[in-house]
């Protein structure tokens, strides 16, 4: 059964314990915090930062300010664009849910980074032997029947780990039970073919202003990788057609030239 995490952002208090737990479990170096115009810290995901909380201050129509804390991490798509893009198959979707990366295969072409619609894979730019890094959905913890580190550490129950169909049911139950509390759509249910991260938010991602920051809403419900696979499915036929045409035209044009030359010869003989 495919696992997922339900992220109920209305329960998040922005404590960032998930960020810390993620760093501890994955043995990632701590970064230097700096002041900026936002409370979000660090500012971006990186090869050293697999998850972070985005802080958003949005005023509702009645003029009241509301905090929104949105956890950002790999969506672990059902049909990941990165896995379709990778030329050596270093990225694969496990039936259990995680999209995992094979350090030993990667050639460092960075096509996964270009292809990912959620801008998730990050590169170890500072290294002379760089690899791609991203959230692993704690595949190593799941293998020994532990929940992901972020879920285990979350103090408010924002993160709920479980089987995806059940989590979806729970998400829709919550929306139905408290319609005023939630935007009536589960981000990740259908987008880009569905993901293993399901987001419940108070307002839409457009309103949160995050469509350019990794939570695109214009992706449609078909997986991005499908376009590449459709192209690849045509390749053998194109190869055969071009090859056949080339050989056929070669002999046809050669014969035509010969006939033409022969006719000219005859004309000369006649004359």
């Amino acid at each position: 059964m495919s696992k997922a995490i339900l992220i109920d952002t209305t329960k998040c208090i922005g404590c960032r314990a998930c960020q810390v737990a993620c760093k501890s479990w994955n043995d990632l170096k701590g970064g230097k915090a700096t002041f900026s115009e936002t409370w979000s810290n660090p500012r971006y995901l990186s090869s050293n930062q697999f998850t972070r909380i985005i802080f958003r201050e949005i005023s509702s129509p009645d003029g009241q300010l509301h905090w929104h804390f949105i956890s950002r991490r790999c969506m672990h798509c059902h049909d990941p664009a990165c896995a379709s893009a990778c030329p050596v198959g270093a990225l694969i979707k496990m039936p259990e849910g995680p999209v995992v990366y094979d350090d030993g295969k990667c050639i460092g072409c960075r096509y996964c980074m270009m292809a990912c619609p959620f801008q998730i894979p990050k590169f170890q730019w500072e290294s002379a032997v760089p690899l791609v890094r991203k959230c692993t959905f704690c595949a190593d913890r799941q293998a020994i029947n532990l929940a992901p580190a972020c879920v285990t550490t979350c103090p408010t129950g924002t993160l709920l780990f479980g089987d995806r169909p059940e989590l979806l049911q729970e998400a829709h139950r919550r929306i139905g039970a408290q319609p005023g509390r939630y935007y009536p759509e589960v981000y990740g249910e259908k987008i880009a073919g569905g993901t293993s991260k399901l987001f419940l938010t108070a307002v839409s991602f457009e309103e949160l202003g995050l469509t350019q920051a990794g939570f695109r809403t214009d992706l449609g419900n078909t997986p991005q990788g499908l376009r590449g696979r459709e192209w690849m499915s045509k390749v053998p036929y194109v190869a055969l057609a071009v090859g056949g045409l080339a050989v056929g035209l070669h002999y046809m044009n050669k014969r035509r030239a010969e006939v033409h030359a022969g006719e000219r010869q005859e004309d000369e003989n006649d004359g």
Binding site: P87, I107, G108, V129, M232
Partner: peptide, 20 residues
């Protein structure tokens, strides 16, 4: 390439879904 010495990988590690 991040790992140029692995430039030969596509020869033996196949992903027929990938345009690259």
């Amino acid at each position: 390439l991040g790992q140029p010495w692995r430039i030969w990988h596509p020869l033996v590690m196949w992903n027929p879904h990938s345009v690259l």
